[in-house]
Design a protein around this nucleic acid. Structure first.
Length: 420
RNA sequence: GUGGGCGUAGCUCAGCCUGGUUAGAGCGUCAGGUUGUGGCCCUGAAGGCCGGGGGUUCAAGUCCCCUCGCUCACCCCA
């Protein structure tokens, strides 16, 4: 047992997973940048108040915040998500609208870890501020959809719902609370407690005892104003236009209190775990105002990197990029020639590995084999004396000698043939 | 925060129920079998205060208690 290990809920992303991680973000960036989204990098901690605007009945705020007082007496918190930060930045810098940004990076929530849930977890996401058009909702959803497809995921279900406008939501919450209270004794104890602080969350309950009561609960759709109803209808039509399959789930309420109007969630049906929601988002038309800005509509989504990668594992797609070397330089004469040749090969763009220390020819060849290099360049006493190198294709082809200054060209030739 | 399962070599695990000489296997690593050549094969080596602490006992990896950690689930969410 080492003296130190990772703190609970955190972990090291080791090779080769870390390069897969980076590739994941690269794919995401390419999908959203094609749609005109620009990268934004926000602080990982902010004034606690920024995140309290997420709602004082959300667990993320009330019990999962990683907050502390810094040396200057400021009460700050590690960000639990990035939407609030984006809105704060929008208010602070008043960019032109529409403001279309994407981000990636870690978020922090103080909760007990389990599969697909960590105290430090990464998300990629986009946000758009300043546009109320329901067809933007469709575009936002379609970008997440495209991203999943680009990763090779098939078993992803899209669930959409609308929470109506602010007034609709309030009226619905009242009606729902009244209904749930009328059947309170039938609910699980946990749900009874949830009812007292946030009736909407009861709809999320996974407990069997609650299922029937929840199933018979009134639907938000009965409370939509004309505007909210037509917005939601337009979103559904737009999704159909793009040929994106979805199901309307009027029990989909989502965890952050700021959501209004369109909400959606992507669920992996390939995942056999408690955490199957791999991405989600929606409209938050009141959030900018809550943060002190002018009333500004907003919409976005966040995708969990760990969970989505878990889904990729379950569907055997998006494997870690392999670290195969192009060429391996073996040198049993001290290593200076290998050092020089490796630098030249790398300068020519070849992925070049070599052995370190005075190892035997056999040992170095073993290492070369393990690196899966296509070619080995061998410098032994004979080569050193004659000023040449032996170039050996590792697939069993004939090995040849060539002058040291022709090694790069010779290797390039073999590698390019192997790749074509 | 609550509950279940699990902590033995770098990794995956056996041994624990029914305490008893130097704690094992596979994989991986390193070296050798070829005094200059990888894969397959063979041989050998290194590597463990059996998570930590306390207790019971002549004797604890094994039984008991505590603790820390991991893990799965609840809550909640990505």
């Amino acid at each position: 047992m080492p003296a130190f290990q990772t703190t609970p809920g955190t972990r090291d992303i080791l090779p080769p997973d870390a390069s897969r991680w980076r590739a994941f973000v690269d794919v995401f960036a390419s999908v959203v940048e094609r749609a005109g989204y620009e990268q934004i990098v926000l602080p990982m901690f902010e004034d606690l108040g920024v995140f309290q605007r997420l709602g004082d009945t959300t667990d993320v705020v009330t019990k999962e915040m990683y907050d502390f007082v810094d040396k200057g007496g400021r009460h700050v918190a590690l960000r639990p998500e990035q939407t609030a930060g984006v809105c704060r930045a929008f208010v602070q810098h008043h960019p032109n609208v529409p403001w279309k940004v994407w981000y990636s990076g870690p978020n922090f929530r103080y909760e007990k870890a389990q599969q697909g849930r960590y105290r430090q977890f990464d998300q990629v996401g986009i946000e758009v501020l300043g546009v109320d058009d329901p067809l933007l909702d469709v575009e936002v959803i379609s970008l997440a959809h495209s991203f999943y497809r680009e990763l090779g995921l098939c078993d992803v279900e899209l669930r959409v719902n609308s929470l109506g406008d602010t007034g609709d939501r309030a009226r619905y919450v009242d009606a729902l609370a009244a209904y749930l209270r009328s059947r309170e004794t039938e609910l699980s104890r946990e749900s009874q407690a949830t009812l007292a602080r946030n009736p909407l969350r009861v709809l999320d309950s996974k407990r069997a005892e609650d299922r029937e009561v929840v199933a018979q609960a009134p639907s938000i759709s009965g409370f939509f104003s004309h505007g909210a109803a037509s917005h939601f209808a337009a979103v559904q039509e737009g999704l159909a236009l793009l040929g994106i399959d979805f199901v309307v789930d009027d029990r989909l309420v989502r965890g952050l209190d700021y959501y209004r109007s369109t909400t959606f969630e992507f669920v992996s049906t390939a995942l056999d775990a408690a955490q199957t929601a791999i991405g989600g988002g929606g409209r938050y038309d009141g959030l900018v105002e809550d943060l002190g800005g002018d009333p500004t509509p907003g919409i976005g989504f966040a995708i969990g990197v760990d969970r989505t990668l878990l889904a990729c594992d379950a569907e055997s797609t998006f494997a870690a990029p392999d670290g195969t070397a192009d060429v391996f330089v073996v040198d049993t004469t001290g290593g200076r020639t290998a050092l020089l040749l490796a630098a030249q090969l790398r300068g020519a763009g070849l992925r070049t590995e070599r052995a370190y220390g005075a190892k035997s020819m056999k040992s170095q060849m073993k290492t070369a084999n393990r690196s899966r290099a296509a070619v080995a360049v061998i410098i032994g006493e004979d080569e050193l004396a004659r000023g040449v190198a032996t170039v050996r294709p590792m697939d069993g082809g004939e090995q040849t000698h060539c002058p040291l200054d022709a090694v790069v060209a010779t290797v390039l030739d073999i590698v390019s043939k192997g790749k074509s």
